[in-house]
């Protein structure tokens, strides 16, 4: 098994009030490890040296929960397209590489510690309207409304968002529009979600603005880095929904 010697430069910050800095660590890895397992090895050795391990978030390690988040050599979730950090494997790095690891950076994602940031702004945006107002027990039969296969499939494409925040981290403007538009699209495409679509788009955009995210310049870095391949088509759809809702309907946000 090929062993590789790597140099890691990792952002260390003990808390929100600490200024933070990049610190350098050597680590030995091999090509079968996942990126996070490589960090586990580092942490294990830090603990054995009675030092504070690097705080980073992770959970499912299957690329679906959206918990893991770090910027690896300037790219959220690292160099491989369509891949979360936990699904990134060390065979994509070479012996002798230097890897710079930083937290997702945005004013709306304050650092809690090291690579851990607070992404509750996303929750608050969903709370503003990212749902269908249906109580348990109210639903009609699931097959009562046929939905075109293609439409359902597009709704799924948007719904595949894992809420990791890579779009914000990648965007030069720290805009959250890909995340917000994915939810708006997912629900606006389906007949079940259309009922409240007008109100939803106004409320969610409003909350997004309040959270201090930047504004989209259509750079499409979000789409390029999104581990789930969410398309910027959704942003166009959100714009459309927003314009027709604010200017073309009587609904007040």
């Amino acid at each position: 098994m090929q062993t590789m010697k790597l140099t890691l430069k990792i952002w260390r910050q003990s808390g929100p009030n600490d200024k933070g800095r990049l610190e350098t660590y050597p680590v030995e890895a091999n090509e079968h490890m996942s990126f996070l397992e490589m960090l586990d090895v580092l942490n294990e050795s830090l603990i054995n040296d009675r030092k504070t391990p690097v705080a980073f978030e992770h959970d499912c390690r299957e690329g679906i929960c959206g918990t893991c988040n770090m910027v690896i050599n300037g790219q959220p979730h690292g160099p491989m397209g369509g891949t979360t950090t936990c699904q990134l494997h060390m065979r994509h790095f070479k012996d002798g590489d230097t890897i710079v690891i930083e937290p997702f950076r945005a004013r709306a994602f304050p650092v809690i510690r090291d690579l851990v940031v607070d992404r509750e702004a996303f929750d608050r945006i969903i709370q503003a309207g990212g749902y269908v107002s249906v109580n348990a027990g109210q639903a009609q039969d699931a097959n009562a409304i046929p939905i075109e296969k293609e439409t359902a499939s597009r709704a799924f494409d948007a719904a595949a968002c894992i809420g990791c925040g890579a779009c914000v981290a990648a965007c030069p403007n720290a805009s959250a529009m890909l995340f917000v538009s994915a939810k708006i699209s997912h629900l606006a495409l389906l007949p079940q979600g259309k009922v409240e679509a007008k109100k939803r788009v106004q409320a969610m955009v409003n909350q997004m603005d309040l959270e201090g995210f930047g504004m989209c310049s259509n750079v499409t870095a979000c789409e390029a880095e999104c581990p789930k391949g969410i398309s910027v088509e959704n942003i166009a759809r959100m714009n459309r929904e927003y314009l027709s809702s604010t200017l073309g309907s009587e609904v007040q946000g």
């Binding site: 790219q75 945005a106 403007n173 805009s175 870095a221």
Partner: peptide, 14 residues
């Protein structure tokens, strides 16, 4: 919105 602390390494792909 980007915040005061920039990235040490930043790659912008589109």
């Amino acid at each position: 919105a980007r915040g005061p602390q920039g990235y040490a390494v930043k790659v912008t792909r589109a």
